[in-house]
Design a protein around this nucleic acid. Structure first.
Lengths: 226, 226
DNA sequence: AAATATTTTTAGATCAGCCCAAAATTTTAA
DNA sequence: TTAAAATTTTGGGCTGATCTAAAAATATTT
């Protein structure tokens, strides 16, 4: 069984390779896990010996099939616990990350599948991120950044790029919650800020920074491998 | 913040001193935690420096107020998670110990109080053990071992002394669940086995060993400190 | 009370996971 | 293409938690 630290490395490597589309560098991992490059090299050797990653000195690191399975499970656990914390324990969506970070390391045969069933097999977490199913399949959605929407187009708020409590709390203040339908009214060339109309008839002005951290969905998603 | 290992030591010391009514010996702790006396001595020094225990070389160890508060919280967390696993995730009562053992180490401000509220502030866990409230108060019950009941007396099955999966599964097979009302019909002097009648009219024969591991309650409990 | 047995502590090692500083390698720029 | 810059690895060392073996203290027996 893997240690929590090893699991965190796998998650980090998964996240980085997924986002960058290329092997994760030692520095990138160190930055993500708030540790030093030297510690990372140490751990990469260990993970490599357990065949959880493909690692070549100086060449960066990629997930192995085995590592990918584990990382996917970790994401699944993390996001299901987040749903539990928000839906059942009534935490706010900006409060759950650290708790889920701990809960995702709980090991047990049927625990997560039972939790999944108890929650009604949710496909997205409170931030709109997809939850892999028990077989590791992801629901992919066609979502784009609000900053890429054209004036006149409609969309449904479906997720956030930035997960920081500050941003999430700001959205709360704006009353801009997930699943709100919006229409982009206007984009101001001066600062790229946008004016939107929500389904309850309010008009809001959003800075370019906010628009670049909000996803909107145009059509419903389909199931596919990985 | 304490490490999981430190927390486990506190729980163990609490359990032993509570049961024995005197300072816990190094060996007793080592036995409980499946480790060596040398490791225990090491840890006792560390816990003592953090003023979590009162420790004097060769004299055994007792809980400090600080340690007692933490140990009580751990018991609270463990038992609330057990309730969650059984009531919400539909685990059997003999399957939840190891998971709760992990979950009790999750740290977070309002997590446990929210869980408590979500579960409806249960006062007992699935094995009938009392759950300390947020202030560390225990509900004490007047319960005695079934082996101490006299023929003709009634009682309600309220807890188990032995928590092993084997015993719990055997009770399941007998259909002897918590809150069953029973009447002791007869005790056979030959082997101290007993014959009982359950509230649904069944007659069961229980060995002395079973009777010595089952608690029955005669009247309802009262709240008191510690 | 001395001898023996048991319990507990100390001393010395190990291991995982982490760090820093220095050396090695790769990448970038001149 | 060679020097400078950036990245990565190595070597040595630290901490928390563990162990074994041996020494010290306490408890028990005769």
């Amino acid at each position: 069984m893997l240690s929590q630290v090893e699991e965190n490395y796998l998650k980090s490597i998964f996240k980085i390779t997924e986002k960058e589309g290329k092997p994760a560098s030692t520095n990138a991992i160190a930055g993500d896990l708030q540790t030093t490059a030297a510690s990372v090299t140490d751990m990469l050797k260990r993970l490599s010996e357990k065949t959880l990653i493909h690692y070549e000195k100086y060449k960066g690191v990629q997930m192995s099939d085995k590592g990918l399975t584990i990382a996917t499970q970790l994401v699944r656990r993390h996001r299901l616990w987040e749903v539990f914390l928000v839906e059942k324990l009534e935490f706010a969506w900006d409060e759950v990350h650290d708790l889920a970070e701990q809960l995702e390391h709980i090991h047990g045969n049927s625990l997560i599948d039972r939790l999944d069933a108890f929650l009604g097999n949710p496909r997205f977490d409170p931030h709109g991120d997809p939850i892999p199913d028990a077989q590791g399949r992801w629901t992919r959605r066609k979502q784009i950044l609000l900053s890429a929407l054209e004036p006149g187009e409609k969309g449904i708020v479906s997720g956030v790029e930035n997960h920081s409590p500050e941003f999430l709390q700001y959205l709360d203040q704006l009353g801009l919650v997930l699943h709100t339908q919006i229409t982009l009214r206007e984009r101001f060339p001066y600062d790229q800020s946008v004016r939107i109309r929500t389904d309850d008839g309010r008009e809001l002005s959003l800075s370019e920074k906010v628009a670049a951290n909000l996803y909107v969905e145009e059509q419903s998603g389909t199931k596919e491998r990985r």
